[in-house]
């Protein structure tokens, strides 16, 4: 938890919108609240003091990517059954309404569908791992309209 405190401190000092740290399977994401008072601009000194693993970056949503999030706490499955093909791969084009994955909660197999048409840019959860409520599962790049 000390690391989380350090990240929060960095976020405050640097003024960036979000910091994500990934270490193996653990990913910690800290976002600034929009209503928070404007932080002072990041100084060179602060940027240099960042540990290597910490890469302040703009939110993928700000880069035009669309996050598909888990509506429930549960287990993330990329395929309908073990040994079957995954619903989608990175690079696939999906249409709105197409199934992307299943999140199982209390033996309820919850089909998660794309709510926009576009390209699958990133799969953010490991197959058969636990996911939290509202956790982003996929980043999609919506089609140009």
């Amino acid at each position: 938890m000390r690391e989380v405190e350090q990240i929060v401190e960095l976020l405050r000092e640097s003024g960036v919108g979000e910091i994500r740290v990934r270490n193996g399977e653990v990913e910690i994401s800290v976002k600034a609240r929009p209503e928070a008072p404007a932080a002072p601009p990041a100084s060179q000194a602060v940027a240099q003091s960042l540990p290597e693993a910490v890469e302040p970056e703009s939110s993928p949503e700000m880069d035009g990517l669309h996050a598909v999030r888990s509506p429930v706490v549960g287990t993330f499955y990329r395929a309908p059954a073990p040994g079957e093909e995954v619903y989608v791969e990175v690079g696939d084009t999906v249409s709105a309404g197409q199934t992307l994955c299943i999140v199982e909660a209390m033996k309820l197999m919850n089909e998660i569908v794309a709510d926009v048409s576009g390209e699958v840019v990133e799969v953010l959860a490991e197959n058969a791992s636990g996911v939290e409520y509202d956790q982003p599962l996929f980043y999609l790049r919506p089609d140009e309209r």
């Binding site: 033996k107 309820l108 919850n110 998660i112 569908v113 709510d115």
Partner: peptide, 11 residues
């Protein structure tokens, strides 16, 4: 046995 599946509108 009971099997439940659901579809969610991600809106």
């Amino acid at each position: 046995g009971i099997l439940a599946e659901s579809g969610t509108q991600n809106i």
